[in-house]
């Protein structure tokens, strides 16, 4: 394996959780709901995933538990913001506080417990392609899931009728309602999808990347996922670009340090953030304006009967 391949492999593992969580949040925001609680849902996924996997001895059940935990958190958020039309920003932030606390309670008995990670899944034939094979087709199932999610959501939002309706809810809930679409139900499903993705991303951390539990192990990745949605201008493929850009710079700066570059490590660590800003500005310049977010983002909707 060459150094380039090795670096790319690491970039993929570093970017995958960001991409999965970002894709979920992208769908939520497209439906017109801003859920700032990604970090809270993600860490609940990480905690419930590892605890369930240890309790049942099954990685797959761990993943399912993580997804369910993310969805349960999302349902709580939906109950507040859809059912009671509460403020979305405040509810999302409260969800993060709640999730960080609850994950600590759930994981308390398992601090320092470990299990074997979920292994790679080699795709026959394709995995033998030189260079691309080992990179793309001999990965853990989460990486495939992240590709599938990106492609699926891109298709869903642009090509399917349901996707169109979901976007309509995000642009103008009142119009979508007037056309007879169940805005709240659609938003509810979108929020649940976002929670499932955040939970899955959390499970990637606690079941694959570093299979054990410590409190706060998501370490702010939920926030980065939120930023990636914005970076992407709510386009799924560009979310993949954003996640890989961020993950890529993160890994490259670690490599540069290991190679002995005499640059302060604080500057190195700041690079992913700075470069993301610079690239966003460049993209916006090239596109001369670019797409804005969903017009109804963050606005509560209460149907008048």
């Amino acid at each position: 394996m060459t150094l380039l391949e090795a670096i790319l492999l690491t970039v993929i593992t570093a970017s995958t959780p960001l991409l999965i969580a970002a894709i979920g949040e992208l769908v939520v925001e497209k439906s017109g709901v801003l859920n700032l609680g990604v970090e809270g849902m993600m860490i609940m996924g990480a905690a419930c995933g590892i605890v369930a996997a240890i309790a049942t001895g099954s990685g797959a059940l761990g993943v399912i538990a993580a997804i369910l935990a993310g969805m349960a958190m999302a349902a709580l958020f939906a109950a507040l913001t859809l059912g009671l039309a509460a403020n979305q920003v405040a509810a999302g932030l409260a969800l993060t506080i709640f999730g960080i606390g609850l994950s600590g309670v759930v994981g308390a008995a398992h601090v320092g417990a470990q299990r074997a990670g979920i292994g790679k899944l080699e795709i026959p034939v394709l995995a033998d392609i030189p260079f691309l094979g080992p990179l793309l087709f001999n990965q853990d199932p989460f990486v495939y899931a992240s590709f599938a999610l990106t492609a699926g959501v891109a298709w869903f939002l642009t090509r399917s009728k349901a996707g169109l309706v979901l976007r309509a809810c995000g642009e103008s809930a009142a119009s979508a309602h007037a056309l007879g679409y169940p805005v709240l139900r659609i938003r509810f499903l979108a929020i649940l999808f976002g929670g499932a993705c955040a939970g899955l991303a959390g499970a990637y951390l606690s079941l694959v990347l570093t299979p054990f539990w410590t409190s706060g192990m998501t370490a702010g990745r939920g926030w980065i996922a939120l930023a990636i949605v914005v970076f992407a201008s709510w386009l799924p493929w560009r979310a993949a670009l954003g996640a890989y850009l961020f993950g890529g710079i993160t890994i490259l700066q670690l490599h540069a340090q290991g190679a002995g570059f005499r640059v302060p490590p604080q500057l190195m660590s700041a690079l992913p953030y700075l470069i993301t800003i610079v690239v966003l500005v460049l993209i916006m310049r090239l596109r001369r304006g670019g797409t804005a977010g969903p017009a109804g983002l963050g606005l509560p909707f209460v149907p008048d009967r």
Binding site: P17, T210, T214, A219, L254, H255, Q257
Partner: peptide, 26 residues
């Protein structure tokens, strides 16, 4: 070879740093 992760606890970043070090021959 030394990599500073600028954190006391960030498991996934630590794992990335470890990968980078191993890939560089440590």
């Amino acid at each position: 070879r030394v990599v500073w992760v600028n954190a006391w606890s960030n498991p996934a970043r630590e794992a990335d740093a470890a990968r980078a070090l191993i890939d560089q021959g440590c």
